[in-house]
Amino acid sequence: MPLVRETNFHQPGKRYFRRYRAGDDFYEALINMHRELSDEQSAKANAKLILLLANHIGDLEVLGEALEIARSGVDSFPENE
């Protein structure tokens, strides 16, 4: 299965009436995880999170695709001065 690029956030047994809602639920939980952490601690928490999710996905083709997309944008988007 290729990398899922469409919105895929959901929760078993929960009905969402608004398209944005499950994604916003996740995003809030993600930002809350970092609450009161230093930048260094946050970086470590992020690293652990990626490792956990990568193991869960497992499929190296999918992970490879995600790695490529994540890397490619980093130096190409214009920066403001």
């Binding site: 469409e6 919105t7 895929n8 608004r18 398209r19 944005y20 994604g23 916003d24 995003y27 997309i69």
Partner: peptide
């Protein structure tokens, strides 16, 4: 490039 990320943008629901 990624449709899922578009849905995460929150400029006001």
């Amino acid at each position: 490039q990624q449709p899922f990320a578009r849905d995460l943008i929150n400029s006001g629901r």
